[in-house]
Write a protein that binds this DNA or RNA. Structure first.
Lengths: 206, 206
DNA sequence: CAACAATGTTGACGTTGACATCATTGTTGG
DNA sequence: CCAACAATGATGTCAACGTCAACATTGTTG
């Protein structure tokens, strides 16, 4: 590891900034994120980050985007290797989402923070939408298997996504005080599944 | 212009700071909140806010707290004057919550932001809990009416609250692009109610 | 009315994000 | 091969910020 003492060019400052920024985000929170400190940590001048991110906000946008991309990848991976029934698959996705949220609380906050540059926001929403779309597919699959009631998969997904994201958001912000890390996740998932379940006996008359 | 030209004492600077801060929060976002600018706006010196909030964070904490208190009051008010059936009441609470969230997106973000001073965080969680508790009661009521399945009201509430808060959070952060302001709220509420509904045939009277 | 606490003012310090200007490097066409 | 050139980094500067300490003014209370 002959880390060259002082190469004039860093090599990949942009990526290094994102990595270090995320560490700082996790360790000290969004408020403690300073471009200058990042530069100091990486041994470059205080204005060097400006070459790669026009703004502090631009760095935050990039961070949020990478968060959505990673979360999407996690969901993809988990969807591929999780159980057979729809219920098990959905549960796996939900747990993955919540786990990401609690392991990256500050990042999640940033991802869903309303204040993004409009241009970056577009890319962000697109990435988030790709994640969302996976749940739509999952639910469509469940419908084909007869494990999910009929109806617009998008609409059903919105409700499911809201519940999962809501739980994750509450957990990430420390609003679920009592028990272990996943205090009422089982109940919440159960409830979601109940909302999706097909009617058992169609009410002939009422 | 009765406004006394330059009284040395402001009268109620603390309250004025909170009011103005919330306006700024709404108009220009959390990042654009500056103690010095607040002081300028209110015609006091740049250090005057320090007499009422030891920190910038202390002001943010107070802002978040007042947000929880107001949201709690809104829910109380709406619960008192909403329809008779459990379903209607729950729907009213959900719409109130979502409405608050979209009308105060930045404030909601702040309220559920993980970074509060531990002391303030306690008061915050307590206030949030009081709001939460109202839903617990509502659900208990629904159970007594036979409109909600049996089971720990706290657990059921967590699922309901997650779904409502999740939808609100998504809406507030601009992640629900397509239709009107309440794109899929109906569906989400329907889904929640379905998750709460008792098994099989509901006993019509009691 | 004399202390006193509460509140506001003034001035200063160190940090930050942003910008303009200059320096170094890697690349590429003649 | 080397002379432009674009990328990238360094340096210096600026205004704004949060925070603090020292001081001024006010209202209250013994």
């Amino acid at each position: 590891m002959q880390s060259a003492p002082h190469r004039y060019h860093h090599g990949d400052l942009r990526a290094a900034l994102l990595v270090r920024a995320e560490e700082t985000l996790r360790e000290k929170g969004r408020g403690a994120l300073s471009l200058r400190e990042l530069a100091r940590d990486l041994g470059v001048s205080h204005a060097a980050p400006g070459r790669h991110f026009k703004d502090k906000q631009a760095l935050l946008d990039a961070l949020a985007f990478s968060g959505f991309e990673r979360l999407g990848a996690l969901i993809t991976a988990c969807r591929e290797r999780s159980g057979e029934t729809f219920a098990r698959r959905l549960e796996a996705v939900a747990r993955t989402y919540v786990d990401f949220a609690t392991s990256n609380a500050e990042l999640l906050d940033l991802m869903y923070s309303a204040k993004h540059a409009p241009a970056a926001s577009e890319a962000l929403v697109a990435s988030a939408h790709r994640g969302h779309e996976q749940v739509v597919e999952l639910i469509g699959e469940g419908q084909r298997r007869g494990e999910v009631r009929p109806g617009s998969p998008e609409r059903l997904t919105l409700a499911v996504f809201s519940a999962v994201h809501g739980y994750a958001s509450l957990a990430a912000s420390g609003m679920l005080p009592p028990g272990g890390d996943e205090y009422g996740l089982d109940d919440t998932i159960t409830q979601i599944l109940r909302g999706l379940a097909p009617d058992r006996t169609p009410p002939a008359s009422s």
